[in-house]
Design a protein around this nucleic acid. Structure first.
Lengths: 139, 139
DNA sequence: ATACAACCTCCAGTAACTGGAGGATCAAGA
DNA sequence: TCTTGATCCTCCAGTTACTGGAGGTTGTAT
């Protein structure tokens, strides 16, 4: 049998912090790790793959709940994959909306930011521009 | 003297939740409100302006700490406005970076999302694509 | 034997609110 | 005057996805 990894090794291999790995175990994204006699966690190849999947998903911006669904699908090979596709598409739409929103914001902010180059705060056009702004709340 | 507003009135006038107004008072963005004999908060025109400024700033994506600096400048008319301009420009750069990051994400996700239209999860290309993804962590 | 790194568990903190419990007060109608 | 319902008060817990630290144990190398 191949030798198992300590939590620090797994952390290095996947670019994850040790505390984060324990956190994933707490919330159930990772199964409870096997322990040595003294209680230290040990990991095998399947754990490395699973954690890598989680990290990649997070890198793509999926939420923990989305990842939970994705992992559940991956764990049951006979289930219908359409759900995974739906999650991905929904997430894509969400990101597109965030981009659009940020672009609106950027344009409004560009107007504000270029309007001033110093002077008395009393006459500051940045502050005036913000005071007069009309933007939908919530970023 | 003009009549003062109850917290609910201020909330309606500025599109802010009552709890949020109290929260801003707690963290010092709004001064401690004057109270009636029975302890209810009352607000005047200056409070309306200040809260509107805060909400507009939030709408533009400024953090509470940034707003704190902006308000400090607005409160002291003799200070140099360059600081406000710097805050705005820094924030603008930040938003541009977030947009760029999200665009990268969107492209990666688009690849993932279109790759599947149902079937066994075991063969799911969405899941495979995520497993094989190489994205910088952190959104 | 003694460092020192790495591990353990538990807990608080982050950002910016939101919602709710439990209780007091106000305005208006009967 | 009484009562009802809206509004207000103060606290406190929960949200997301971790991160960092305290206080203590274990493993390894010299």
């Amino acid at each position: 049998m191949t030798k198992r990894l300590a939590i620090g090794d797994l952390a290095r291999q996947t670019g994850t912090k040790v505390n984060t790995i324990r956190f994933y175990e707490d919330i159930g994204l990772l199964p409870r790790a096997l322990r040595t006699a003294s209680g230290r966690r040990t990991y095998g190849a399947a754990d490395v793959r699973r954690l890598a999947f989680i990290r990649h998903s997070r890198g793509l911006g999926f939420s923990v709940e989305e990842i939970r669904s994705l992992l559940a699908l991956a764990d049951e090979p006979e289930r219908d994959c359409a759900e995974a596709a739906a999650i991905a598409r929904r997430h894509l739409r969400d990101i597109e909306m965030r981009i659009a929103r940020l672009e609106t914001l950027r344009d409004a902010l560009a107007d504000v930011a270029i309007s001033c180059e110093g002077g008395r705060a009393a006459d500051c056009r940045v502050i005036e521009a913000i005071a007069g702004a009309e933007l939908p709340v919530e970023v």
